[in-house]
């Protein structure tokens, strides 16, 4: 189902059909978007259900002022960042950094099937500050335009470009330290 078809259903009050269209179209993309942040299949699965419930509850208020996919991504991103903030608070209590917890999750993940370079890339991403991680994931993996990322995150395009540049530089340094 295309975004236009989903919007047409939503505007006609066919909310359940519109929602089913969103589920069909976005489940996989949102799963990987969230999974890159949480580094756990179980956590991603739980949070994804919360995200879709939020999408369902907000669907009637979607006015079409933004593109459907940036609206969907914005909800998913906000929920994910809120979830990570809660995890960060818990990690402070446990006296360890969230990036260390995430690196451990990547190492222990029974579903990991990549090579060492992929493993280190994902660990390096976890060491980035939140905003750099956000822009790197959406730009590098999802190929989103800066304009769309700006709409999702509420940040200027210039700031996003700078963040992406810093993210690439840090990842390069980390990878060089490991592999060169």
């Amino acid at each position: 189902m295309t975004n236009n078809e989903i919007i047409r259903l939503q505007q006609a009050g066919e909310l359940e059909k519109a929602f089913n269209g969103i589920v069909e179209t976005y489940t996989e993309r949102l799963y990987w978007h969230v999974r890159r942040f949480l580094c756990s299949h179980e956590d991603t699965n739980d949070l994804l259900q919360d995200i879709f419930i939020k999408i369902w509850r907000s669907l009637s208020s979607f006015r079409g002022e933004s593109q459907l996919y940036t609206w969907v991504y914005r909800i998913a991103t906000n929920e994910t960042l809120n979830h990570l903030r809660k995890q960060r608070r818990n990690s402070i209590i446990e006296m360890c950094s969230l990036s260390d917890i995430m690196a451990q999750r990547i190492d222990d993940d029974p579903y990991f099937n990549g090579n060492e370079m992929q493993r280190e890339l994902h660990k390096a991403i976890q060491r980035l500050p939140e905003k750099q991680r956000l822009v790197f994931n959406m730009r590098y993996f999802d190929d989103l335009k800066y304009e769309d990322i700006a709409e999702i995150t509420g940040t200027s395009v210039g700031a996003l470009k700078a963040s992406y540049h810093h993210a690439c530089t840090k990842i390069k340094t980390d990878m060089e330290n490991i592999f060169l």
Binding site: W32, R35, R36, H41, D109, Y111, F112, N113, G114, N115, M117, Q118, R119, L121, H122, Y140, F141
Partner: peptide, 8 residues
């Protein structure tokens, strides 16, 4: 391949 998600 770095862009691919290395998870089953």
């Amino acid at each position: 391949q770095l862009k691919e998600m290395p998870y089953d």
